[in-house]
């Protein structure tokens, strides 16, 4: 119909619609709009707002005053190290626990049941886990009482309201996530590759070292980044299970105090921005190192 009416136009080349379609734009592309609006309203705008706000100090002064204050006050800048000191070991422990367990679980039949059990801690949320740990690991908790009953210790161990309380809580809430990601990468590798390596004389350790590990590295890097970002933004467990004035005064606590105790939103935004850039720095460094490894498909043959 249209085509017949505009037949002479064909001499001038394809229509605008055809040219757009050739570049991947058509009516279906419009379906991106809701997602774009969502991310614009809930991520881009608040981020940009916070970014600008961080350069408008409440107490006046020049535009970098907030950042200068952060990096000159040990009580503030030490939170970066304290947070990293929690987040990096926790992420590494989670990852190092997840790899051997994933290797065992990939051979199991009841993977689904196990997966469900592991997802539970994620759904419970950090606060409930923190409450549980306070009771369980506290001076009067089962753990200490059991050890004392058996005479293994005479004084209760201090396991909460310090670094290790937060550490334990982050491992418990972070592990399922790390594990599920690792499992999906491990099961994504064609088992025939391991069989081939075995028939070629490779021992179990050599098969892991020379076949699985190189193929897993890119996936493990992504898992590390996602787990690290989760651990780095720790807040509830650092307050409930840690020493929020001492060794577990993490960077999110500093931001919350600035914003909601000193009512200095500008300073709070500046700290949030610093937090974001530290995370970004680590993530970029880890992802960039992926370039050192093979990143193609992890199966023995092409499709």
């Amino acid at each position: 119909m249209d085509a017949v009416a505009h037949a002479p136009a064909v001499e001038h080349g394809p229509s605008l619609r055809q040219r757009l379609a050739a570049r991947g734009f058509d009516a279906v592309t419009l379906l991106v709009i809701p997602a774009a609006i969502f991310s614009l309203l809930l991520f881009v705008y608040p981020f940009a707002f916070g970014f600008v706000l961080s350069f408008e100090p409440k107490a006046g002064g020049d535009w970098l005053a907030n950042y200068r204050r952060f990096f000159s006050d040990p009580f503030l800048y030490e939170t970066i190290a304290k947070t990293l000191w929690l987040a990096i070991p926790v992420t590494l422990v989670n990852l190092l626990l997840a790899i051997p367990i994933a290797f065992r679980v990939r051979l199991m039949r009841n993977q689904r049941l196990l997966t469900t059990l592991l997802v539970l801690p994620i759904t419970l949320g950090t606060v409930l886990v923190a409450e549980g740990l306070l009771n369980y690991l506290g001076p009067q908790g089962w753990f200490n009482r059991t050890l004392m009953t058996f005479g293994l210790i005479s004084q209760p161990l201090k396991l909460v309201h310090n670094y290790w309380g937060v550490f334990a809580s982050l491992v418990i809430t972070g592990f399922p996530f790390t594990f599920l990601l690792t499992l999906s990468y491990v099961t994504g590798i064609d088992p025939a590759l391991e069989q081939a390596a075995a028939t070629l004389g490779a021992s179990a350790w050599q098969r892991f070292r020379h076949v699985y590990l190189p193929l897993l590295m890119p996936g493990l890097a992504i898992t590390f980044c996602l787990s690290f970002v989760q651990a780095f933004s720790v807040f509830p467990s650092a307050v409930l299970l840690g020493e929020p004035a001492g060794p577990t005064r993490v960077i999110s606590i500093a931001a919350a105090q600035a914003a909601f105790e000193e009512y200095d939103y500008s300073m709070g935004s500046a700290i949030a921005m610093i937090m974001g850039f530290v995370q970004l720095g680590i993530v970029v460094a880890v992802l960039a190192s992926r370039g050192l490894f093979y990143r193609g498909p992890a199966s023995g043959a092409k499709g």
Binding site: A192, L193, Q195, A196, A198, T199, L215, A298, A301
Partner: peptide, 19 residues
């Protein structure tokens, strides 16, 4: 164990190490 037998094997999907 397979690694102790030393038989060479060619797999249906080749199972070449992609990396």
């Amino acid at each position: 164990r397979p690694e102790e037998r030393g038989f060479g094997m060619v797999f249906q999907n080749y199972a070449l190490f992609p990396h």
